[in-house]
Amino acid sequence: MDNLRELYQEVILDHNKNKRNYRKIENPDGFAHGVNPLCGDQIDVYLDLKDGVVEDISFDGQGCAICTSSASMMTVALKGKTEAEAQALFKSFHHALTDEKQHPEDVPLGKLKVLTGVKEFPVRVKCATLAWHTFDAAFKKLKDEITTE
């Protein structure tokens, strides 16, 4: 049960119930649709960048509590971050959930740390990382579009 409490901390349950930035952005700079084919979870991520900073970020879709709260917390964590900071946070978060060893370049996770309990539930790691991969896809698509213009 300790593991379970670690997985479903109050902060996570709260973000699941009261989703932050759970809305569409009309004509976003970046957008991606994320699907976990194993379980059917679907997350859409919308992204606006201004002068290299995440000006606005939102999500919608449906998933389990881990997936939903991770998406919600991600939007809070990324708003106002520079592109480089956002990428570093994604990498560090991913490392924290999937890798045993420390990476020297990892940055502090702040509030996202509550999600690292997922590590004890390997089948649920994908739930926690879906939104982040979707963000990454939206971001990369945006960058591709910019470089090809």
Binding site: L4, Y8, L38, C64
Partner: peptide, 28 residues
């Protein structure tokens, strides 16, 4: 509660059930 969360919580009680689309996505 989403089915995956049900699955994890029931598992902690020793109860093994299946969660997901059961390879029948048109039914979902």
């Amino acid at each position: 509660v989403h089915p995956h969360d049900i699955g994890t919580l029931l598992d902690m009680e020793g109860v093994a059930i299946r969660t997901g689309h059961h390879c029948a996505q048109p039914v979902m």
